[in-house]
Design a binder for these strands. Structure first.
Length: 274
DNA sequence: TTCGTCCTGGTA
DNA sequence: TACCAGGACGAA
């Protein structure tokens, strides 16, 4: 569910409240989201204070000691919400980190595809190596994108979703980026000319930046660090807009199934021919 | 590269 | 009641 803009929003929301906070207790309500097990997790986390909080791809990474990281992935329906008290009812709570100031960091996750891990920086580095470049970083140039796309010959849409190719893009922002670049989701990745790569590069930057400015896209599950929905769902051109008119040409937005997931596109603006 | 799978609930 | 869902991994 949460893609780069959603995770970025959560991290920015939580950072000022979590800096320097200690974990004084842990409540586990569903073992599945904690592969380490509660006892090992407790021994690694209790008494540690959070010194940094950042995002990489769709991961939330908290430094809890010199060489120890708490790594959270929200999966499809995960939420990380900070509450000053536990009176507010939250559904699907799987784990709670109790902080030294009495606040609770709640991990809720309806479908339980997300998880929490604790690892050393070396272990994280090995994971990090297998993730593609951050699309909003300076390192993500048109030439870098061109090289990444050239290395794959399959349909471009699933390539954009592949975290080993580019970090942080999910189904929403992939569809929106392809629409904005006027590229059909089934175009072979290595068939784009330089002008098309340029369009895609600027479309990816623009759609992700817009998503962050709008504090994420909420259809049902996503909430920010305070438990509030985002607003980017009101700015989507194609994602989940099947049957509605294209904003550029008025044609009916279509949906097709690609690599097991929905792709939304305008059949006129996003022609499959080069 | 594609498919199935992990899960649960909302919606048509 | 069937279908759909924003992710990621491993197997074929």
């Amino acid at each position: 569910m949460p893609e780069l803009p959603e995770v970025e929003t959560i991290v920015n929301d939580l950072r000022p409240y979590l800096m320097g906070r200690y974990v004084v207790d842990v409540s586990l309500l569903d073992a599945k989201i904690l592969p380490l097990g509660l006892d090992a997790f407790r021994s690694l986390v209790l008494g540690r204070s959070i010194s940094t909080l950042k995002r990489r791809a769709k991961y939330i990474i908290a430094n809890i000691a010199d060489d120890l990281l708490l790594v959270v992935h929200l999966g499809m329906t995960g939420r990380l919400i900070l509450r000053a008290n536990s009176n507010k009812e939250e559904r699907f709570v799987r784990l709670v980190l109790h902080l030294d100031n009495g606040w609770h960091l709640i991990y809720a996750d309806q479908r339980k595809f997300g998880h929490l891990e604790v690892m050393t920086s070396a272990e994280w580095a090995r994971r990090d190596e297998r993730i593609g470049p951050e699309p909003l970083s300076d390192a993500f140039t048109v030439n870098v994108l061109a090289g990444l796309l050239q290395a794959h010959k399959g349909a471009i849409k699933p390539i954009l979703l592949n975290q080993r190719v580019i970090a942080g893009i999910g189904n929403i922002y992939a569809d929106e980026s392809l629409y904005e670049a006027r590229l059909h989701p089934e175009r072979p990745s290595n068939s784009l000319n330089l002008e098309e790569v340029r369009r895609l590069h600027s479309a990816i930057s623009a759609t992700l930046a817009r998503g962050i400015n709008n504090r994420g896209t909420t259809f049902s599950d996503y909430r920010d660090g305070q438990g509030r929905p985002g607003a980017n769902q009101n700015s989507l051109a194609v994602y989940r807009q099947e049957g509605k008119p294209c904003l550029m040409c008025g044609a009916s937005i279509k949906r097709l199934r690609l690599a097991g997931r929905s792709s939304h596109y305008c059949p006129v603006c996003q022609e499959s021919e080069t």
